[in-house]
Computed example of a mutant assay.
Amino acid sequence: MTDQVAAKQLMDPASRDKEKRKKARKNFWTAMLFMLPAIAIIGFFLFYPMFKTLYFSFFVVNSRGDTISFAGLSNYLYLWESSTFRTSMKATFLFALYTVPTTILVSLFLAVITNEKVRGIPFFRVAFSSTLGVSVAAGATIWLILLHPSVGVFNNLLAGIGFDRIGWLTSSTWALISVSITTIWMNLGFNFIILLGGLQNISEELYESARVDGAGYWTQLFKITIPLLSPTLFFVSVVTIINSFQSFGQVDILTGGGPNNSTNLIVYSIYREAFESGFFGTASAQAMILFALVLILTIIQFKFVEKKVHYQ
């Protein structure tokens, strides 16, 4: 081994560089060999459907998935002029506006209060994270019963205190709010666990030093907790925004996109356009617009919001 090391040291720089490149190529192909199964699976289930959708968006496609004729940008121009698509986009942005900030703030509040060392707090941690174990179908069904116009718990409570019943799922004004409340409840468990984990990673010594210096609870919260939790908050915000643009199950079960397309979010609009109307071309165009929208929002967050994140 010593002779080999001495021989390498005696090699001229050009030979050493050649040897390094040879070793790097060998390591690269070895790594690719180990990654090949994962690349194949990701390529087949992610990249192939994505490129197929992009391809379909430029064609007229029948209900069997066969391309009939080249349409160019006609599918995109059709969506630009479609009032239904504009309503869908408006509903999607309103839904994201209702759900994303509320979910993060409520989850943060629950995580902060359950991070306290109080007797019996493990019970509340389990309770607040329990929605993570509830499927979308089960959660939406629970809220479908709670929001029922005649036998629902909420309307019975309103009637009991003298208020008029509300068409939670049948009114264009309340339907999107009702779906948003359901979504917030279903997303609380995941965000709560992530934020609580972030809080528990903050060193207790920082709080002890702050208390010695006379810092109160609110000073510690805004000067220590929030800044040190910012990487976790950033991750939660990115994931929550992406999930808000991909919501489908609760819309399908609660409202079916109605009434008057007030809850026809873009993912549900894609489903209806493709599998109910059979227009795969325009559905693919909607899917590509959704992809571009989510990509742009994610890039904006990494470009501007991440600058406010404190990693140390």
Rank of each mutant, 00 (worst) to 15 (best):
Met1Glu: 07
Asp3Tyr: 01
Ala6Phe: 06
Lys8Phe: 09
Lys8Leu: 09
Gln9Gly: 12
Leu10Cys: 09
Met11Arg: 14
Arg16Asp: 07
Asp17Lys: 15
Lys20Ser: 10
Met32Pro: 12
Met32Lys: 10
Phe34Tyr: 14
Met35Lys: 09
Met35Pro: 13
Pro49Lys: 07
Lys52Asn: 11
Phe56Pro: 06
Phe59Lys: 03
Val60Met: 00
Ser63Val: 12
Gly65Ser: 05
Ile68Phe: 10
Ala71Pro: 02
Tyr78Asn: 01
Glu81Gly: 06
Arg86Cys: 04
Leu94Cys: 03
Leu94Tyr: 10
Val100Ala: 05
Thr102Met: 10
Val106Ile: 15
Leu110Asn: 04
Val112Ala: 14
Val112Glu: 00
Ile113Leu: 12
Asn115Thr: 11
Lys117Cys: 03
Arg125Trp: 05
Val136Glu: 08
Gly139Lys: 02
Ala140Ile: 06
Trp143Val: 04
Ile145Tyr: 12
Ile145Glu: 12
Leu146Phe: 15
Leu147Tyr: 12
Ile161Val: 15
Ile161Thr: 13
Phe163Asn: 14
Trp168His: 09
Ser171Gln: 08
Ser178Met: 05
Val179Asn: 07
Ser180Tyr: 13
Thr182Ser: 12
Thr183Tyr: 13
Trp185Lys: 02
Leu188Asn: 00
Asn191Arg: 00
Phe192His: 05
Phe192Lys: 07
Ile194Ser: 13
Leu196Asn: 00
Gly197Asp: 12
Gln200Trp: 08
Asn201Ala: 15
Glu208Arg: 07
Glu208Gln: 10
Arg211His: 01
Ala215Gly: 03
Ala215Asn: 02
Tyr217Ile: 11
Gln220Tyr: 07
Pro227Leu: 06
Pro227Cys: 05
Val236Glu: 02
Val238Lys: 03
Val238Asn: 01
Thr240Phe: 01
Asn243Thr: 06
Phe245Asp: 02
Ser247Asp: 06
Gly249Tyr: 03
Gly249Ile: 01
Ile253Thr: 04
Asn260Trp: 02
Gly278Asp: 00
Gly278Lys: 09
Phe280Tyr: 14
Gly281Arg: 05
Ala283Asp: 04
Gln286Glu: 12
Met288Asp: 08
Thr298Phe: 05
His310Ile: 11
Gln312Val: 10
